[in-house]
């Protein structure tokens, strides 16, 4: 196998570094967005609706993460309304009419709320470690896949 020329070597290194960074950013962004925005609870459930509302306690949190008495009051209120047969739109409408826009979450507030939830202390270490491990492993996987594609493109060129 021919050794790569010094110029080629540094290009390969730059390419690998670039691919590595892109992989890491992509995986991190995807996993973070999944954590922040994904609502795994059924839509017409307390957690499903709490996902869209802000914590009423003036902490920068999403209601689903709020265990304070004010948050529990709102969750109870959602539950009572679900029991009467109302659906997400009816309940969200109720919260807006009664509490105004402060009850609703903008995407920026959702991001701030989730960031606060993770960074304010007491977040289970296991969850943080698991998240980082998944990011590392899938970054390696994406990186490997992209490098294989880059090598495939480079191989015909070398043959030529």
């Amino acid at each position: 196998m021919d050794r790569a020329a010094p110029g080629e070597k540094s290009l390969t290194m730059y390419v690998k570094f670039f691919v590595g960074v892109i992989s890491f950013i992509s995986v991190l962004t995807f996993m973070s967005a999944r954590y922040i925005f994904l609502n795994s609870a059924p839509e017409n459930s307390v957690m499903g609706i709490s996902h869209s509302l802000a914590c009423p306690c003036e902490c920068p949190m999403v209601l689903e993460d709020c265990h304070m008495s004010c948050g529990l009051e709102w969750k109870n209120l959602i539950g009572v309304k679900l029991k009467t047969g109302l659906v997400k739109q009816d309940i969200t409408s109720y919260f807006y009419k009664r509490y105004g826009k402060e009850a609703m979450l903008t995407p920026a507030q959702r991001f701030a709320g989730k960031w606060y939830e993770v960074t304010r202390g007491g977040y289970p270490l296991r969850e943080v470690v698991l998240f980082l491990l998944v990011v590392v492993v899938w970054t390696a996987l994406l990186y490997t896949g992209l490098i294989m594609i880059v090598e495939r493109f480079q191989s015909p060129a070398k043959k030529a």
């Binding site: 954590y35 795994s40 059924p42 307390v46 539950g79 679900l82 029991k83 998944v134």
Partner: peptide
Amino acid sequence: KFSSMKTPEVFEGSTGE
């Protein structure tokens, strides 16, 4: 009563594993 009220963690259930 109201369906699940557990706070979601970073990964639901064993999704992370």
